[in-house]
């Protein structure tokens, strides 16, 4: 790399990681200040683990992300197989357009539109609170679905169409052919879709904000509530833990990739 390119790259990464570095450092601050460092301490981590509301919101976030990503992966994979087999040009164009809507629309529009529908139906049914865990789950599945379909569809197009046919010639039922021949071929796309859905759901704030009920609080919503008041380094401690979890997962997946490559080379 040329010298000017290297300096430019460093500057960009300083810009991207400056706030992350700040929150890493200040999570260990002894005082409550977020801009003056007065000494090393682990007390904000201790406080974090005593804060049962925040811990519960972490648990809620994980439960929601896991359910939303599993549901959207199963439904999205089935939809991708269906779309792939579709012969009618018009039906295909219509489905493609609808699938694109949640990806193009700003999050705030998706959130508001679902909220209005839930509130309307809730009030017609005479429910005291129309928003709950279930409305949030529906919203999360809705914005995850297009990403799953978009990951699985290309894998189906790359697959040799004679593969499931051969399985059926060998006596498999169509269902068996799907699970034994098609699914293993498209598995990388399904897994990428699942991971994308999981991280999108984990990180979503805007859509959750509009569709969340009072009883079910996710971490981003809790953080939003906390930043409305004065923020303590406790939140930075939480962010630091999230950062190192991501880093660990990335390193693990990197090693898995390398093992994969080695095995492929051996073959």
């Amino acid at each position: 790399m040329k010298r000017s390119s290297r300096i430019y790259t460093i500057l960009i990464f300083v810009f991207l990681f400056a706030p992350i570095a700040i929150l890493l450092v200040f999570s260990f601050n002894e005082a409550k200040s977020l801009s003056v460092f007065s000494g090393f301490s682990l007390k904000w981590y201790q406080e974090l683990f005593r804060d049962s509301d925040t811990l519960r919101s972490v648990q809620n976030t994980l439960v929601l992300a896991l359910s939303a990503s599993l549901i959207s992966t199963v439904m999205g994979t089935a939809a991708a197989v269906g779309i792939h087999r579709l012969r009618s040009k018009y039906a295909r164009a219509a489905l493609d357009t609808v699938t694109n809507i949640p990806m193009i629309n700003p999050d705030i529009i998706t959130g508001i539109s679902l909220m209005l529908m839930f509130v309307f139906i809730g009030s017609r049914l005479g429910m005291a609170a129309s928003l709950s865990f279930w409305t949030m789950l529906i919203a999360h599945v809705t914005f995850c679905l297009p990403y799953v379909i978009l990951q699985v569809l290309p894998k189906l197009q790359q697959m040799d169409p004679s593969l499931p046919e051969a399985a059926m010639d060998l006596g498999c039922t169509p269902t068996q052919a799907f699970f034994r021949a098609t699914l293993p071929e498209i598995m990388p796309g399904v897994i990428t879709g699942l991971i994308m859905a999981f991280t999108l759901s984990l990180d979503d704030f805007v859509i959750s904000y509009f569709t969340a009920g009072n009883g079910f609080q996710t971490l981003p919503i809790r953080i939003y509530g906390m930043t409305k008041k004065t923020v303590t380094p406790k939140m930075y401690a939480l962010a630091t833990i999230i950062f190192f979890t991501i880093l660990l997962l990335l390193l693990l997946s990197n090693f898995a990739d390398r093992d994969d490559e080695k095995q492929k080379r051996k073959k």
Binding site: F17, P19, I20, L23, Y224, M235, I242, F243, I246, L247
Partner: peptide, 11 residues
Amino acid sequence: IPMWMNFLIRT
């Protein structure tokens, strides 16, 4: 990596 961290805290 920054995209995976909560944007509220980063902001």
